[in-house]
Design a binder for these strands. Structure first.
Lengths: 159, 159
DNA sequence: TAAATATAGTCAAAGAAGGTCAAAAGGTTA
DNA sequence: TAACCTTTTGACCTTCTTTGACTATATTTA
């Protein structure tokens, strides 16, 4: 498994908790997590800031002071207008390999792509697959992804 | 046969590790290898870039920062000399959209790809998805397809 | 209500990888 | 030997993680 760093472990822990919550919402306390993983509290903040972003489909709310908490909400994307809007916004004229991989991963999580499809498309937009200089490479990648998304949204695309 | 440059030794070492791995996937750390061979880390990068290429049937992934690693994946092409030859011939350095579509279709017929995967990959290598001038476009298409095929042949690729 | 307590947030520095690029060194070949 | 290709090195860059000092805000208590 991919829990090489503390941050990865904390990420996994949170995701497990989210999975076992019925409504995709959990609350936790920063200090408690820090104790559980023997780290400074800001480590938790780091994990939230890098892994539980809106781009990746999470909303994080919190409150300070006594009785404070951090609430993590998995944001569902309902297959239509929202999804298109999200894709339109995420997919600019240029996109890095990392951002593209993030988009594909999200699509898998939303049930739009299978794991196999993700791997194949990741291969197709991989740096090594696009022997181009840098502004151009990110541009072509964005172009490919747009086409893929359009295809995916065609009425006659198979389930 | 006694070339024995440092690069050759490192190459051999990595290949031995790959051989003794169960699934043709290993992970290593650049710095660790550099220490083992008493060389600068970029020497390892050089070996990877010259010996563990797509053409030779290897995929290389990596991650920076704490917990960083280099993952080397060997695609078992030798398993199937025919397939290898077929790919070498069909999939040259350049390939047209039509020929590429033919390959994908063939792969579906062989049970290597699903219909959905074919549609998505066709979208990805479509003329419109590759805003490039003509010699280049066919070259990038060939590159993408190679990457996709290699990915498909990874031992750890899901059924 | 003021002070104490309990949380969470921010930010920058330090640490831990890997990447890039070009020059120097070493080999091969015409 | 000159030209060319491959290997070796090192300086510098980018990305990601960990840590801690300091800040902000909410609740509880005196």
């Amino acid at each position: 498994m991919e829990s090489r760093t503390l941050a990865d472990q904390i990420e996994d822990y949170i995701k497990r908790k989210l999975n076992s919550s019925r409504d995709g919402v959990i609350e936790l306390q920063r200090q408690e997590l820090a104790l559980r993983f023997t780290c400074v509290p800001s480590q938790v903040t780091y994990v939230l800031g890098t892994r539980f972003t809106l781009e990746r489909g999470y909303l994080v709310e919190s409150r300070r002071g006594g009785g404070g908490y951090i609430r993590i909400i998995r944001v569902p994307l309902n297959k239509d207008a929202e999804l298109k809007e999200w894709l339109r916004q995420s997919l600019g004229d240029y996109i890095s390999q990392e951002a593209a991989a993030g988009l594909l991963r999200r699509m898998v999580e939303e049930g739009l792509l299978t794991r196999r499809e993700e791997l194949l498309l990741n291969a197709a937009i991989n740096r090594q697959a696009l022997p181009l200089e840098l502004p151009k490479r990110d541009q072509v990648r964005a172009s490919i992804l747009k086409m893929v998304v359009l295809t995916l949204m065609r009425r006659d695309f198979p389930d």
